[in-house]
Write a protein that binds this DNA or RNA. Structure first.
Lengths: 260, 260
DNA sequence: TCCAATCGCGTACGTCGTACTCGAAATGAA
DNA sequence: TTCATTTCGAGTACGACGTACGCGATTGGA
């Protein structure tokens, strides 16, 4: 029994309705995962302890281990459940820019609904929902004659941008939860004086220019996100060859140099 | 005294040699940070406990709190110390592509030397060394007439790529430390059978193509990193206007769009 | 010399994940 | 219906963790 969890959680599917002797399970992975996500959304991942989840379900901590080998595996399940909220069509539409834009916005929305998610740094989740999103994003760049490696690289540029942007957007949240100060306090008390001191020091000229001339951080989050996303998609469009078979709508950003 | 650490660690510099009564400190922030980094390099961040650091220094855990308000702040110090290993010139060279490439490779090297670093998901570190690197990378894109916001966005595309690439490169390391299995075991036992099962299922066509046709994951890490970096830099080059004042050497547009 | 400030650090508290264990419950076979 | 078999629920316990608190030892200035 102490050999549990020596293998990927995705290889240990929950046994569906068993037939045979023995008591029937009173809970389920989906129920436990949903409860854990609810707690993490409201109070952060640190508050999402096994005891707390059990308490929320009206049971003890150890009961959960009948359904999940380890807390880390439960977090894998949580991440994939969040990926399940990302709504993408079954198949790319043919407009790669619209498709990647859709994935980006959906992923951002899911990230904002579940702020704890971006605080994680883990190996990529291989759960079914994550794979579905991955497949859609990669498929959007299919049909240009690119090598699969090039498609992966370009597609992940969008993914990397979204991750980074969402992390910036809510990065202060976890910190706020730890210290109990909201964003205003954080700016004013925690880093504000330090930033002022750095600016006054005269070192780091680009950092200072960013503080002085940068408008991005003063814009509404939606516009800020779109601004960066447009830059990334423009850069991709600029290296994307013209689609060979597909009719060139405004999708492919014509006259692009070849990239591979 | 319990008000300690309610403000950024960078606003609480270590008091240099104090003059006045009282015992002289026997340790230093730099010494504690270096010790913590050494432990984290060898055994991972989880093993880098306050007790362990103290033990390595021949003292107790609580002694460290004379120098560092909280463990989180010590981690900030560690991150900035790693940034201090990134060697960049005082000022960009004028060849933006060479400059960004330098930062990318140096950052990767530092990340590989300190694998724990990429497992962190934190607000950006504002320490002096981090700011220096940030300033250099941003300055490389100066002189094209771009708005500071555009420069920030493009520069961070490189940073995001490096972060993601290094994370992929050593992502299995932390996991290996937790489970005690090396990469071979991890592939063969942990996800291997699952990946085979996914491929056999026939779903996720792009994922399958990546497994079947993708050469990237079978290449040496250095080439893999360079491949992705070239794509990112090519994409940036493709949206970069011609430099107005600077003589157009091979810097702005490398005339080598195909890197595959 | 003596005072006050500072350091080193032992002790202790509340928290965590989870290994172990055993009674309770649910089934199929008799 | 009865009972052996199997699984579930959950209490207890262990060894970590970060760190609050407090006290004796050390030091420079008056």
């Amino acid at each position: 029994m102490s050999e549990m969890g020596r293998v990927s959680i995705w290889m240990r599917p929950e046994q569906a309705q068993r037939s045979g002797p023995g008591r029937r399970p009173g809970y389920s992975r989906a129920q436990i995962t949903a409860t854990a996500i609810r707690i993490a959304d409201a109070e952060g991942l640190d508050a999402t302890t096994m005891r707390r989840i059990g308490q929320e379900l009206g049971t003890g901590a150890m009961s959960l281990y009948r359904y999940v080998p380890r807390r880390d595996d439960l977090i894998d399940l949580m991440v994939d459940a969040v990926a399940g909220e990302i709504e993408v069509p079954d198949r790319p539409s043919g407009d790669w820019r619209a498709d990647l834009s859709l994935v980006a916005h959906q992923t951002r929305a899911a990230g904002l609904r579940h702020p704890w998610q971006v605080t994680l740094a883990r190996r990529p989740t291989l759960g079914p929902h994550s794979l579905r999103v991955y497949d859609f994003a990669l498929g959007a760049l299919d049909g240009f004659g690119l090598h699969i490696d090039a498609m992966t690289t370009l597609s992940s540029m969008v993914g990397n941008y979204v991750d980074s942007a969402v992390r910036d957007e809510i990065g202060w949240l976890e910190h706020a939860r730890h210290t109990g100060m909201d964003r205003g306090q954080w700016m004013a008390e925690y880093v504000g004086p330090y930033v002022g001191q750095v600016v006054a020091s005269g070192k780091y000229p680009m950092f200072i220019r960013n503080i002085r001339e940068g408008r991005l951080s003063h814009q509404p989050p939606d516009e800020r996100f779109q601004y960066g996303l447009d830059h990334v998609l423009n850069a991709i469009a600029a290296v994307l060859p013209a689609p060979p078979t597909r009719k060139a709508s405004d999708a492919g950003r014509p006259t692009a140099p070849d990239a591979c």
